[in-house]
Nucleic acid binder design. Structure first.
Length: 589
DNA sequence: GTGAAGGGCCAC
DNA sequence: AAACGTGGCCCTTCAC
């Protein structure tokens, strides 16, 4: 296919072409860069295409500091304009470069990567690279060989420029196809929600989260010493079951090998089940000291390997901060996932969390939704008693315990509250009696009885969960409040698979609506933070962390709370929403 | 040496 | 007969 393009490298033609392009309703939008990291590389090209006409802007021709170059103002206006839809594939990438190197936001985002993920609706075998999406929705091959070519050469080759133009041009027909499919599948609202969340996520990744390396190292050192001591004691205990085979002390067992540890424990006469995971070992720990020691070792070792020295490698040499990768549709439910490093799995202990703190003169605002998934479940079920437990305004689990066990709120025993709490969390996931018995120590019959009592207290909750599961299995579809879609695939002859599919499909609308709410909140707070010192630094499913000037902490925290409550209100009408906000020097509460 | 699978465990 | 949902990262093991 022959590709036509205009190469723009001077102020006058840039002004002219931007004025013409700004009249277009839809433009393909792409960038070429010399690196993958916007803090390390150069934004070389910005491309637009109407599908017929493609324009390549060579940013290098506008000097080494494009942020400061007034000649690029028409370009910034075009990029920021909400009137012209910008179709980009994984727009977060382009938005980061534009944000950092041109100093503007991208307005009117339509992201073909996110759109393709929404349409795939959880079908995991679908791929979402631009080439894959083009192949699937248009049916043509896209040559990506130039993607990794050298974009730092002063004279770009004809091949490179054609590639750059073609990548932008293909996005327009792709947009037509994707838009049609989004509408046909009832995904317009959720698509809007996703596209509006791209800029907040872009800014959050660029800002990064400050991690105090010195504090982190102190923590590691203390744990390492503890780990070495415990490992030694454990080796000693395990070798008691083995005949002395060497003059040089006991044979070493690899404590990280399940197989070796399993054998060693068996040799000591400890009846270890096939699995050696913590939940099956815990009941044995009291009677058998080596098992207790193993669990202690595992905890320390996990800390050291997942949250040890390696974590510090993620501190960026230029910014001194950690810039994780947030995948906006990381799970089929619509939840984010996070990697390199995963800031959504930092242990709760203060020792870790206090290493993430605000810079000098700054403070963190840490806000999270209280019981958001249970409130969503209450909303969906419409169950009067369940909603009533939230409306009572007191401790929810205690209120539920009072209802389930039919006692006055002030007479709820700690045990009753604990049962209610575990049931409340469990029902969201489709908890069964066997599992409930295992985690509480109740007999199977007692567990069944308690579950029955629970659902008798909340008959409409019971009804909702059954109906929701039935309908999902029948239609093989589930949706969240924003319309996010999940296609279920399972073998109906496989009972276990069908059971898992039911639990997944019942949980998805709840977990997914929580994700919808968070994404809506991200957009609202992003808009509210313009012109303030506030910046997003982290999100963890139902939690948002901001950093701002100490002087602004009160006003920013109020903005955050308002945004989060408003976002939830768009989806949850009948149940009160509660957001806990803390102003804190570090990521503790 | 590299990569996938499986076990294990951190978060919500 | 019966496994409570979603992720990422680490390690060992095993195949290539």
């Amino acid at each position: 296919m022959e590709v036509f393009f205009e190469l723009i490298g001077d102020a006058e033609s840039l002004r002219t072409v931007c004025e013409q392009l700004s009249k277009e309703p839809v433009l393909g939008f792409d960038t070429e860069t010399t690196e993958l990291d916007p803090y390390l590389g150069e934004l070389r090209l910005v491309q637009f295409s109407t599908g017929k006409r493609s324009v390549i802007i060579d940013i290098r021709r506008f000097g080494s500091d494009p942020r400061a170059n007034r000649d690029l103002e028409p370009l910034r206006e075009l990029i920021e304009s909400e009137r012209t839809v910008k179709v980009a594939h994984n727009s977060k990438f382009d938005a980061k470069w534009v944000r950092h190197h041109l100093g503007c936001e991208v307005g009117g985002i339509f992201d073909s990567y996110l759109a393709s993920q929404l349409i795939a609706a959880g079908e995991s075998d679908r791929r979402h690279s631009l080439a894959d999406v083009v192949q699937f929705f248009i049916g043509t091959e896209l040559d990506k060989t130039q993607q990794v070519s050298d974009w730092s050469a002063d004279e770009l080759s004809q091949l490179q420029l054609e590639y750059a133009a073609r990548d932008a041009a293909i996005l327009v027909p792709l947009y037509t196809q994707l838009k049609e499919r989004l509408e046909a599948d009832g995904l317009t609202r959720v698509a809007e929600l996703e596209f509006n969340a791209v800029m907040p996520v872009t800014d959050m990744e660029l800002t990064g989260f400050y991690l105090d390396a010195a504090r982190w190292r102190e923590n590691i050192e203390a744990i390492r010493q503890e780990r070495d001591r415990v490992a030694d004691e454990l080796q000693e205990m395990l070798s008691a079951g083995v005949s002395q085979s060497s003059l040089f002390g006991r044979p070493e067992i690899n404590l990280d090998s399940q197989a070796q540890v399993h054998d060693a424990l068996s040799n000591l006469g400890i009846p270890v089940p096939e699995s050696t995971r913590a939940s099956v070992l815990e009941p044995l720990a009291e009677e058998h000291p080596p098992v207790a020691k193993l669990l202690e070792y595992r905890g320390l070792q996990k800390s050291l390997t997942s949250f040890g020295e390696n974590f510090l490698e993620f501190i960026h040499p230029k910014t001194g901060r950690v810039h994780s990768d947030f995948r906006q549709i990381g799970a089929p439910t619509g939840r984010f996932s996070c990697s390199n490093p995963n800031l959504q799995q930092i242990p709760h202990e203060t020792a870790y969390r206090r290493c993430f703190h605000a810079g000098a003169g700054k403070t963190l605002i840490v806000a999270d939704y209280s019981q958001i998934e249970l409130r969503i479940l209450a909303e969906f079920s419409g169950d009067t008693n369940f909603i009533g437990a939230f409306q009572s305004g007191v401790d929810f689990h205690a209120a539920a315990a009072a209802q389930v066990f039919n006692v006055r709120a002030e007479d709820v025993s700690p045990d009753q509250r604990s049962f209610a709490k575990r049931l409340n969390f469990g029902v969201v996931y489709g908890l069964g009696a066997a599992r409930f018995a295992a985690m509480t120590g109740l007999s199977q019959a007692e567990a069944e009885g308690t579950l029955r009592k629970y659902f008798a207290t909340y008959p409409d909750l019971d009804g909702y969960l059954r109906k929701s599961g039935d309908s999902a299995l029948r239609t093989r579809l589930a949706r969240t409040a924003s319309g996010r879609l999940l296609k279920l695939r399972y073998d109906e002859n496989d009972r276990a698979a069908a059971g898992a599919a039911r639990r997944f499909a019942t949980n998805m609308p709840i977990q997914g609506t929580s994700a919808d709410i968070l994404k809506r909140a991200l957009r609202l707070i992003h808009d509210e933070l313009r012109g303030t010192s506030g910046k997003l630094v982290n999100i963890v499913h139902d939690e948002i962390v901001l950093e701002c000037d100490e002087a602004d902490s009160t006003s920013v925290s109020e903005k955050l709370k308002t945004a989060m409550v408003s976002a939830a209100r768009e989806f949850v009408k009948a149940v009160p929403i509660d957001v806990d906000v803390a102003i804190s020097p570090d990521w503790t509460k």
